[in-house]
Structures are given as C-alpha cells and as structure tokens.
Design a binder for these strands. Sequence first.
DNA 1: TTTTGAGTGCTCTTTACTTCA
DNA 2: CATGAAGTAAAGAGCACTCAA
Length: 311
Amino acid sequence: MELALSLGDSSKPFPFLEKTPKLSRNGLGFCKEDDRDGDDKRVSSDPPLQLHLLPFSPLPRTPPSSQLRLSWLNDNLQETGSSEGPVRGLDVNRLPLVALGDEAEEGAAQSSPNSAASSFQMDFGIRNGGIRGRRDMEAETERGSSRASDDDENGSTRKKLRLSKEQSAFLEESFKEHNTLNPKQKLALAKQLNLRPRQVEVWFQNRRARTKLKQTEVDCEYLKRCCETLTEENRRLQKELQELRALKTSQPFYMHLPATTLTMCPSCERVATTSTAAAARNTDAKTGGHPFSPLETRVTQSQTQADQAAS
DNA sequence: TTTTGAGTGCTCTTTACTTCA
DNA sequence: CATGAAGTAAAGAGCACTCAA
C-alpha cells in the first residue's frame, strides 16, 4: 500500500520519517567549547533534528535561577569554583569523588582518541609491556569497565540510586540547553551535582532515549490523525463523484451536446447547435428577446460566414 | 503500574600504527 | 630511504534493549 501524503506545502512534512538523524550538535549550537575536545568529532551531514515536540517536560521550565546556575554553559568552566555552587550539599549518592578531581577532569579533557590519552596508552599500554596507563584505567573507570566495576564499591552490588529533585531539575535544565555532553561538560556537571560522570552520562542517555520515545508517540498520533483526515476526505470525494455520475445519467442533456447537430435561429436565421437553440428557447429576454446570447451570436455569426464562404 | 537509574552489547567514527608498492 | 595509500586495531561515544528498584 502506497501512502502519499501531501499536506500543506512543506517539502518535508515528516522529517522524522527520514533516516534517523544523529543529533547534530552543531545544529543545536552545542559544543561551544573546543570542538576537538567535545564529541563533535562525529561530523554528520544530516540536518539538525527538527522535532516539533509537544510539551514534554516533567518539570516546569524555570528560568535558570541562581540555584540552577549552569556554570559550564558559560564557556567559562572554572576548575575549582564549581564546588562552591549552589548545589553543594546535594550529597545524595555521594561517592568518593576525590579521584574525579582535577585529574579526572584533565583526563576527560584529553579523552579524544587522538589526544594524549591515546598516545599515553600507546606508550604505556599493552603494546609496551601490558602495563596499562593510568589514563587508560581512568578512562575505563569512567565508562567501559565502570559498567561492571562500579558494582562492588563495598563488595556488594551497588543499589540503584535516586537523584534528588534538585539534581534532576539541574539536569533537566542542562538537557534543555544541550541534549548531549562533551566530556568537559559532563565532568563539570558531575562535579556540580556531586555525581559521578557516569551517572550524568547515563542520565543524558536515558533522557535522550525517552525523549525520542515520546516524540515517536507524538509522531504516530499525528500520522494517525493525518490518515483519518485523508480517509474522510477520500470518502467525501467518492461520494461527490457518485453524485456527479448520477447527475450525468439523469440529465444527459448537459453532458451530451450533439456537436454536429445544427439548427437555425428562428429570429435571425443563424446557425446554432440543437442543444444550444433549445436552451436558448428557454432563456429570458436578457438578450433583448433574442434567443442567443451575444457570445453565442458571435459564434453562430462566424459559423454562418464560414458556411457562406464555403458555399 | 509507572518511572527511572543503570548494565550490556552493538555500531559508527576517528586516530594511530603498520605494511607495502 | 622517503612517501602515500590501504588495512587494522583501539578508543570513545551513542543507541537499543533490558532489568530492577
């Protein structure tokens, strides 16, 4: 079944039907900081994602107050100042962040594959004797291996932690600004919220996934409505067509003009088609009592002249 | 039952390195 | 020996799927 929708003049009425675009950080104005540091390494030619999102914000949008100050948004990341942020004391899920201090931030700033981290790993990693570099270990703690190794902080499986309202609100505000984070931003955010960078990362991943899910539902609803509208329109047009066909069969008079049947106007002796003459007989005196309209008269005149010339 | 934090596996991109003509 | 192209491995990031609190 082929469904061709033409709604409005939008050339791309359903951008979401195209290949799922990777979120274009450029399109979102993200990564104001050094892009080489950021995750803008993925250059996507896809247009910026333009989702006509219905309101999806579990939290009321509040202007960034002093309580929700996103220091990292100001291109002015302060290495130490963030700990003085207003969220200090949101000590839920507090974990040993000592290791995430400047060292971790430094490591993240070099998280690019082409960064010193990679060369460091090359220099001290498996290739050179199997001793993994510290940055490598940190990187794994940061992400890959941390998936599993974080489990046993105290020898027991880590419980699922619930973010506080303040933390959630802060993350929401951040997400509204940018729905992806580069390592620097992630670390700064984690520092401000007293969370592990991994937690921030996971929160953003989940948020993106659930936003996408919501958007899919919205798009689905929209398509459904479009389908219903088109079905109704189709039904209406079919009905109209039937009526016209019925009219055509009941009144062939209008539909089957015998073009070759000519007759003479009784008053002026001009040639007209039978049907036209018959219709003219029913006309009122708008044409001064003449059964032909001026246009018809002109037509019949030229016909007469042509006939005379032919004869 | 719903929400949401988190684990896992996969894909994709980038980069450094190696090999070869 | 220098050089550029091609191949490869590794790292990092995001996403889909899933589970569980």
